[in-house]
């Protein structure tokens, strides 16, 4: 059986510098895998290499068995691998609703000519997309915010809307880059709830970069620990908690 995501000996080398070196792991549907490690460990490089923003120099990335390592970000996304961004990826001038509808772009019917002439198919597709976006916002209790520009949301709300936008197209695989950074304890708990719901109820495979240890330990099925671009440990939260190499990497013992 092929895994949802298979990362095989993946490496990103820039003229001698190994930003990412020989990383392998797999991820199944409904599984949450956290990637942790000190700053500069190569976590975001790993995300960028998987999602097409950085071209890997070594190894392969397979999505349901199909190689995606050298595809462009938009075609990887169109195949069902979607991600969020560490610094927030919302479109500030668009409303919350429009942001979520942008996540539905590929599912919204209507070709250029139908759109230009305002034909019924295109208008109906717009209404359907808007209705679906509102439904998703309501599910996350964000429907009150639907018509305000995304720039007016708080940091926590922006993270939640970004996740709604990212999952709107129901991708089987989700990459979340520090979704809880800068969130209040309440928003953090809400975020954990969302992650658990997506993997548990919707069967989404989730790859998660996170610094908040309690969130990682509670939400992740498996953890990948990285340092200096390499994988230094892998296992269940319980295994990682007691791993000597991990403690050394974090505490700086030689």
């Amino acid at each position: 059986m092929t895994s949802l995501l298979t990362v095989d000996h993946l490496g990103v080398h820039f003229s001698g510098l190994k930003a990412l070196d020989d990383v392998s792991f797999s991820l199944e549907a409904g599984q949450v895998r956290a990637v942790i490690g000190p700053n500069g460990a190569g976590k975001t490089t790993l995300f960028n290499a998987i999602s097409g923003y950085v071209r890997p120099t070594h190894g392969s990335v397979r999505l349901n068995g199909a190689e995606i390592a050298h595809s462009s970000p938009h075609s990887i996304s169109a195949r069902g691998l979607r991600r969020t961004f560490q610094n927030g990826g919302l479109f500030p001038a668009l409303t919350v609703l429009e942001n979520v509808m942008t996540g539905l772009h590929m599912q919204t019917e209507g070709n250029f000519i139908q759109i230009l002439f305002g034909l019924r198919q295109a208008r109906q597709a717009e209404r359907d997309a808007a209705a679906k976006a509102r439904r998703l916002l309501k599910l996350m209790k964000m429907d009150q915010m639907a018509d305000i520009p995304a720039s007016e949301l708080s940091g926590g709300q922006q993270r939640i809307v970004e996740i709604i936008r990212t999952v709107a197209s129901e991708p089987p695989l989700l990459l979340l880059d520090e979704p809880a950074v800068g969130l209040s304890p309440i928003a953090r708990a809400q975020m954990m709830e969302i992650i658990k719901r997506l993997s548990g109820e919707n069967g989404v495979g989730i790859l998660l970069i996170e610094h908040a240890v309690e969130l990682v330990m509670a939400a992740a099925d498996r953890i990948l620990v990285m340092a200096a671009g390499m994988r230094i440990a892998e296992g269940t939260p319980a295994e990682i908690r007691n791993d000597k190499t991990v403690l050394e990497a974090y505490l700086g013992h030689a």
Binding site: G89, T102, S169
Partner: peptide, 12 residues
């Protein structure tokens, strides 16, 4: 607004 994030939504 954000070309990189736009591509992440499957948009060419």
């Amino acid at each position: 607004e954000n070309e990189i994030a736009t591509a992440s939504l499957g948009i060419a």
